Computed example of a mutant assay.
Amino acid sequence: MSKSAAGFLILALLSGVVHLSLFEEAEITPPLISCTVFGVLFVLALAAGRKIKFDPVLR
């Protein structure tokens, strides 16, 4: 896992915890929106961080 993916994961978890601890009855809040955005960025960072090795020599 890359450093950016780990950072986005931590930010998503922290904003999710803030949403659950501060806003119990509200449905859509800024921490929940940021949790969603950081979650999507986490998945994109995981996809971008994959290293695909290409072997041009067929054996």
Rank of each mutant, 00 (worst) to 15 (best):
S34K: 01
L32W: 07
K51F: 08
L46M: 08
G16M: 11
L58F: 13
K3D: 15
L20F: 13
V57I: 11
K3G: 13
F23Y: 14
L46T: 04
L46A: 07
V40Q: 02
A6Y: 01
S4L: 12
F23C: 02
L22P: 00
M1K: 00
L14P: 03
I52V: 13
E25S: 06
A5G: 03
I10S: 02
L22F: 09
C35A: 15
E27T: 10
I10N: 03
P30D: 02
V40L: 13
L44V: 15
A6E: 14
K51L: 06
M1N: 10
K3F: 06
P30C: 04
K3R: 09
D55P: 03
L46E: 10
A5C: 07
G16F: 12
I10R: 01
A45M: 06
A48D: 05
H19C: 13
L22M: 10
H19N: 15
A47H: 09
E25P: 00
G7D: 10
H19I: 08
S34H: 05
R50P: 03
P30N: 04
G49F: 00
C35V: 09
F23E: 01
L41S: 05
L9N: 09
L58P: 08
S2F: 00
L58R: 12
F54G: 00
R50Q: 15
K51C: 04
S15H: 14
K3Y: 07
V40N: 01
G39P: 04
S15M: 15
V37G: 11
R59H: 12
S34D: 03
K51V: 15
K51E: 11
K51M: 06
A6F: 09
V40H: 01
I52M: 06
I33N: 02
K51Y: 05
V57M: 02
L20H: 10
S15I: 13
T29P: 01
P31C: 05
V18A: 13
E27K: 07
R59C: 05
F42P: 03
A47I: 14
G49K: 02
T36Q: 00
S4G: 02
M1F: 11
G49S: 09
P30F: 08
P56Y: 12
F54A: 01
G39R: 02
P56I: 15
F54D: 07
S15R: 04
G7V: 00
L46G: 06
A26Q: 14
L13Y: 07
D55Q: 06
K53S: 09
A12C: 14
